[in-house]
Design a protein around this nucleic acid. Structure first.
Lengths: 243, 243
DNA sequence: CGGGACGTTGACCTGGATCAAAAATTGTGG
DNA sequence: CCACAATTTTTGATCCAGGTCAACGTCCCG
């Protein structure tokens, strides 16, 4: 599971670009879905999340933004963001100069390539969540999110092998994994009872990372289509596979 | 809701590229997750779907590919696809020449731009499904998929105002919307009883498109962050919004 | 030290899963 | 073109994961 966004890919380039450093308190709206003239941004530190809301107040968080992550790439060529972003903790970020950025992208094939990969990675991560929300149960999704965050924080040097600080409310956490707060709370209780993880005062302790990992079903990289006939056909098909 | 994939964006360019025209029967595997050396492809006619499977056989379909849609873009720069693709009906598609395509992309800023937008659109569509799977009930998701397909088929000239041919098994449909076949079947029955849609022999008839549309919750393009303090802060924040 | 936001627990209810089995449809081979 | 075999649709009965309602404890910041 690659990191979810452009992240570090843009970092080095960002150093060469004009960028405005900003800070916002927890809870502030960094981007509102539909806003025009929003910039591409890079989280420096603190947490944020990208979400969509429905008319009746239901909220679904699409992904968590950690230090190093990029957001607002869709604004690069003038599209307006389809999701809002809110700070989950006090946050510092860079707002990149649109002109500088698009110039650089125009000139550097390498940056373009990284941009492309960043979008693919985001795609992949969203795909993972589609699978989890569609097919996994509460426990699997909860374990998956905890481990996903842990892995990304590790890469960013913000976690130890056994723990990290979770800058999310349980209600926010619930809105990532598609559960209701109350049930999420019970699931976390169960995981604690089984000595897998415990969360105390925003501090997550992975008592048994491996055991936790066994809860989250991996996505195999190869598999068989369903149905007998289908299987036969796909076999026949594989004869003239791409060269 | 834009079409889910690169689709027509690549079409015109495809005409200039060397491409191999291929046909596969229903059920054949067009791409296997993890395969190397797979080409970028464009559906000419027929339906397919991109899916991921878990070790224990659970399958989640990530999106439906209709005529004009592109898939395998991730292979453009050598990445291996993270999802498999299977033909949902007999299908014809173009397998684009990798060399030609990457040359063209290198040269044409316009094509690059379209590519970028195609990825963003796919992203957006996946985001929509994350929201639906996370927060909508069976009826909302079912209605959403039917209308989504209808809209896309209309654009492709493959549907009338009131109906279209659904080249999907109920079990495949269920694996898109994250339900089990049996329950999906009941939901469809309910919708038929309410004279909203009926499906007979793969033919979908939208008896009341509007009524159906009212079932699927729209995603407003602007909204308020939650929490009183949070709201205040975000207000303060919005003072120095991006220029 | 007071009030809002956050976490936790208990009781109960329902949407959707699961099991079982029949009816309808499709594709296949003769 | 028919008859069979596999797949797909439909219906009924039952069960349970997770949602919902209601409270209470707790923390944090002003």
């Amino acid at each position: 599971m690659a990191s979810e966004t452009a992240a570090s890919l843009i970092w080095p380039a960002a150093a060469l670009l004009r960028a405005e450093r900003r800070m916002s308190p927890r809870g502030s709206a960094l981007t509102r879905a539909g806003d025009l003239g929003v910039r591409v941004r890079v989280v420096v530190n603190g947490w944020a999340f990208r979400y969509r809301m429905m008319h009746d107040g239901r909220r679904q968080i699409l992904n968590i933004l950690l230090p190093g992550d990029t957001f607002g790439l869709e604004t690069l060529f003038g599209q307006s963001p389809a999701a809002s972003v809110q700070a989950a903790s006090p946050i510092t970020y860079l707002a990149l100069s649109p002109a500088d950025l698009s110039n650089t992208v125009e000139q550097s094939a390498e940056l373009r390539h990284k941009l492309f990969n960043a979008l693919l990675a985001e795609n992949d991560a969203l795909g993972n969540w589609v699978v989890r929300l569609g097919k996994c149960d509460a426990e699997e999704r909860t374990a998956a999110l905890l481990l996903d965050l842990h892995e990304r924080l590790l890469q960013a040097g913000l976690a130890t092998a056994r723990g990290f600080v979770l800058d999310l409310t349980q209600s926010e956490f619930a809105d990532v994994v598609g559960l209701h707060v109350i049930h999420l709370n019970r699931v976390l209780g169960r995981l604690r009872a089984r000595k897998l993880v415990s969360i105390d005062k925003k501090v997550v302790t992975l008592h048994d990372p491996q055991g936790l990992g066994e809860l989250v079903p991996p996505f195999p990289r190869c598999e068989i289509p369903l149905g007998i006939r289908a299987a036969n056909r796909s076999f026949a098909e594989s004869q003239h596979a791409d060269g």
